[in-house]
């Protein structure tokens, strides 16, 4: 799915260095490490939001060309992405979750079906008509996750998907991710502070420290 070669990303005085790293199809990867170890920087590179200072990324056997904005947008659309501390638009939960599908010009009926399905799966149906800014942090996190997972993508990048979420809902999220992997053969890459969560659902764990894989 992904191959990272000689990647270097410099952000102020911090630098992330990855000599060689591969993410395979249909696997769940956990990226762990302390604060400031480079987890979010790596996530930003994998979502193609930030261009690495140097190095190459191959996605689905194609070298990512950052100079071709149209191709880059299409590549970005094949990745479901949940940001750390996600932002919800000033609209209802339903419209927030449907947004990614609407901009992909998916028909109204399919959008309704998919949105209802993911909201039910993540126990969010009762919040569907609620305005996003009225939600608690945990609810907002789950809505942002629903907005990410509702998109049919071969790969999902989730930056701390269970941050601010209570134990019962963490279990629901983990089950949803495992179902995605089993049924759709999706690749899931998530960052977490919890080594136990990594052990529970990840096939492989990548540990970062001071901007390097250890």
């Amino acid at each position: 799915m992904y191959r990272l070669t000689a990647i270097k990303q410099c952000v102020d005085e911090f630098s992330l260095t990855i000599d060689n790293c591969e993410f395979k199809e249909g696997k769940i990867y956990a990226i762990t490490g302390p604060n400031g170890s480079g987890k979010t920087t790596l996530m930003d590179i994998l979502t193609f939001i930030k261009q690495p200072t140097s190095g190459n990324i191959t996605f689905k056997n194609r070298l990512v060309d950052y100079n071709d904005s149209s191709a880059l947008l299409q590549t970005r659309r094949r990745v479901g992405c949940l940001m750390q501390n996600p932002y919800l638009f000033n609209m209802t939960v339903l419209n927030n979750v449907a947004y990614g599908l609407k901009i992909r010009k998916i028909s109204h009926n399919i959008i309704t079906e998919k949105v209802c399905h993911i909201l039910e799966q993540l126990n969010l149906m009762h919040l569907a008509s609620q305005k996003a800014h009225t939600l608690s942090k945990g609810e907002a996190q789950r809505v942002a996750l629903a907005r990410t997972l509702v998109i049919d993508a071969p790969v999902y990048l989730l930056d701390e998907p269970s941050a601010n979420v209570d134990k019962a809902n963490i279990k629901t999220i983990e089950e949803t991710l495992l179902v995605l992997k089993e049924k759709k053969n999706a690749t899931i890459i998530f960052s977490t502070h919890s080594s136990k969560q990594a052990e529970r659902i990840a096939d492989e764990t990548i540990e970062l420290d001071m901007g390097k894989i250890i």
Binding site: T47, I49, L73, R76, R77, V79, C81, L82, M83, N85, P86, Y87, F89, N90, M91, Y99, G100, I103, R104, R147, I151
Partner: peptide, 24 residues
């Protein structure tokens, strides 16, 4: 400040980002 990055991460193009920014 997270809006632009969120729109990029969801896969919005420039026009779609412009209209969402207008909405926000």
């Amino acid at each position: 400040s997270r809006l632009t990055k969120t729109l990029k991460s969801i896969g919005a193009n420039r026009q779609q980002s412009f209209f969402m920014l207008l909405n926000e």
